[in-house]
Amino acid sequence: MYDSMAGVTVVEVAGTRTARFAGKLLADVGATVVRVSGSEPDPYFDLRKASTRSTVTELLAGADVLVTDLPDSELAELDLDPAELRVRYPRLVVTLLSALGRTGSRAGLDAGEAAMQAASGFLHLTGYPDREPLLVPYGLGELQLGISGAGASAAAVWRARAAGTGALVEISGAEVLASYVRIYGAVGNYYDIALVRDGRRAPGSGGRWPFGLFPCKDGYVALIARTAPEWDRFLEMLGSPGWAKEPRYTDVRAMAIDYPDEVDALVQPWLNARTRDELLALAQEYKVPMAPVRRIDELTADIQMGYRGFFESVPLDGGEADIPGRPWVETLAPH
């Protein structure tokens, strides 16, 4: 039983999966989440929620949190103006989630996932340098905004209980993603590396070869052997090739920035001759940071995920479906 938020009542008014995901996470840790929406239930996000036909205003008097991603115009139609709610329910935490924020010159724009990724600078880093940028799939921005909404709501609830007053929590998805881009910016500034799209590589995150995804016999592996000891062990794993002693291939920064394709070509035949599992076994033996890139069907059958009970079976369309569950394990303190 996960009960960090037991006794907390959350009213969820969702227009997109941003608020639904925030509600799911709060329900996962014990909050009572009441779903108020005209859309069809989502079995993934609504697994632990209660649905109701009651109006939102009927529920708020006994609630601790209102979490919503509806635009201000729709909130006004529902008599849910945030400023008025703060007066009517002074102990309530009102969490407002939106793509670009609810204040400023762009607050009224009809923006979604693409706008969040673009406005944050995230798209500047995704894709190949000679092509248009690529959106990160599966609604990364919406889900990250939902995570921030859940965490901020939980923090505001504990503050409200201590201070006796609620709070207005307002989060912009573009700003959430921009905080991730900031990390790459700091690293790029430290190493004096321009941040550019570089396909399957990531030289801007530290400037040493190798860091990226590499093909192998039956798929891809992720390889990040960037410190000097890791690089030495990687070369040993390769069988100490003669080319590694040439001056051109001892400058790992230049290898990453100036001629990575050339270095890839030296290593790729060795990788192509081995499967992901074979490479993982070698990486464990030589202590090289390398991991297989799993397919979705392989992930659902993964023994580690299964042992930890990550996937859950839920009713779906007359049958059952395995869905991702909570990405944590919570152990209650003994009484």
Rank of each mutant, 00 (worst) to 15 (best):
Y259W: 14
F214P: 15
G319Q: 03
D79E: 07
G188L: 03
A114H: 08
G7M: 02
Y307S: 15
R294A: 08
M5F: 07
L271W: 00
Y190V: 07
A162K: 15
M290D: 00
G38R: 11
E175I: 12
D46G: 07
G242Y: 12
A150V: 03
L143S: 09
A178C: 08
Q268L: 08
G15W: 00
A111P: 03
W231E: 06
G151A: 09
L316T: 13
A244Q: 12
A160I: 15
A155V: 04
E312M: 06
S148W: 02
A167T: 11
L280R: 13
S39L: 13
Y138N: 14
V10Q: 03
Y180S: 06
G127E: 06
E246K: 13
R197E: 00
A256C: 05
D251N: 13
D198G: 10
A22Q: 01
F122Y: 08
S105D: 05
F311L: 01
T16G: 06
R91W: 01
L26Y: 00
Q284Y: 02
T16P: 14
Y184I: 13
A321E: 03
G112V: 05
S4V: 10
D46N: 05
E262P: 05
A119I: 02
F310P: 07
V10R: 04
G188F: 02
V36T: 05
L75G: 08
L271Y: 00
R53L: 11
A281H: 12
D297C: 14
L279K: 02
E58M: 08
L145Y: 02
E77V: 10
L80V: 08
H335I: 14
A222K: 05
S313I: 11
V267Q: 10
V136M: 12
W328E: 05
P315F: 06
A111R: 13
A22T: 04
E230Y: 12
A63W: 01
A265K: 09
S313P: 12
P269F: 03
V176R: 03
A99E: 02
A19R: 10
A83H: 12
G151N: 15
G166E: 02
V67E: 00
Y180I: 13
W231G: 03
A99D: 00
M290S: 10
P43G: 01
E84M: 15
E113L: 06
G112T: 11
A228S: 10
P269D: 15
G318R: 07
E330Y: 15
A160M: 09
R326P: 03
T9Y: 04
Y44G: 15
Y259G: 02
V329E: 07
P289T: 07
L25I: 01
D277P: 09
D258E: 12
L78H: 11
M305V: 13
V196G: 14
R274C: 02
A50G: 09
A333W: 02
D261N: 06
M116N: 05
L125R: 15
R88P: 06
V293S: 11
S54T: 12
V36A: 07
L78M: 09
T95N: 02
G146I: 00
T275K: 05
G101L: 00
G141N: 06
H335L: 11
Y220R: 14
V221S: 03
V169M: 07
S240F: 04
T275A: 04
G318W: 11
E230F: 08
S105Q: 10
W231R: 15
D28C: 01
S105K: 12
Y180D: 07
L177H: 05
D79I: 01
G173H: 04
E58N: 13
